[in-house]
Amino acid sequence: MTSGRMELVCPAGTPATLRAAVQAGADAVYCGFRDETNARNFPGLNFSGEELAEGVRFAHDHGSKVLVAINTFARVNDVDLWKKAADTAAECGANAIIAADIAVLDHVAKNHKQVRLHLSVQAAAATPEAIGFYATNFGIRRVVLPRVLSVQEIAALNRAIDVETEAFVFGGLCVMIEGRCYLSSYATGKSPNLNGVCSPPEMVSYDDEPNSTAARLSGYTIDRYEPGEPVGYPTLCKGKFKAGGKTSYLFEDPVSLNAGGMIAGLKAAGVTALKIEGRQRGKGYVTEVVRAFRKAVDAVEQGGDAIEIDRILAGQSEGSRQTAGAYSKKWR
């Protein structure tokens, strides 16, 4: 359980967004390389080695840390790309590497002892035994928690482990066991876990039809939108399908996580760091969300009450539908 100030960990899809997040008050930013070693492998996004080195210098000059996500799973006989990414991150002065693949964790643990290892959410480690395995064998210092635990479960977990925990508080939700998703692979032949991209954009289309717009992935219709209705990015898990004669969001409602109201609870549960999702989002969005959460976290640290926190984060609940996710398992 942590007694220090909670760390705000923010997304950086590009060098410009890294600078924006740092200037908006991020304690740490996380980013990845421009290849399939990271789980946000979208065109035009991510960092070269040179850009990462520059980003690390900028962040350190402003008192922020840089965590590098090398969090996809290496392919058989092709681990060198992942090892090289870890070597480059270490050379650039990254504060930590976020990884899930045992080969990557092992490489960093053996060759870059000065770099902290954070266990990626993609490892889906949610028990003291699983986390203990990674701590004992690879010396992980922090685990990014799967978004399936309640605050009470996180508190119990923190009492049973001696590594830091990081919890998502804002952004997109993944319905499967943290990215271990076969839906995208089935529809597109590309895997979030291996290629770093869920619903690859080259297979996404928005097609105008009489009285509606269809969002499709690889030819499958994921959703239809009435004229004027806000649209979404088509992912199979959040698509609207007909089953049993009824049309509904079959797997998951298209809602986003907002656990802003639970920051105090997460602190009390012993969480060390709060993570904002959204490396694919622009710097305008990142700046706005980071600023709001910076104020909220500072208010919690200074003993602010729930009403004050709600007021600070009120602007973040406009627009898309939101949920506190598993942090508040009201069905129990």
Partner: peptide, 15 residues
């Protein structure tokens, strides 16, 4: 082509 739009959008964002 959605991927071309995304590439342009991300590039402009960073520029």
């Amino acid at each position: 082509r959605t991927e071309a739009v995304l590439a342009l959008r991300n590039t402009i964002e960073d520029a």
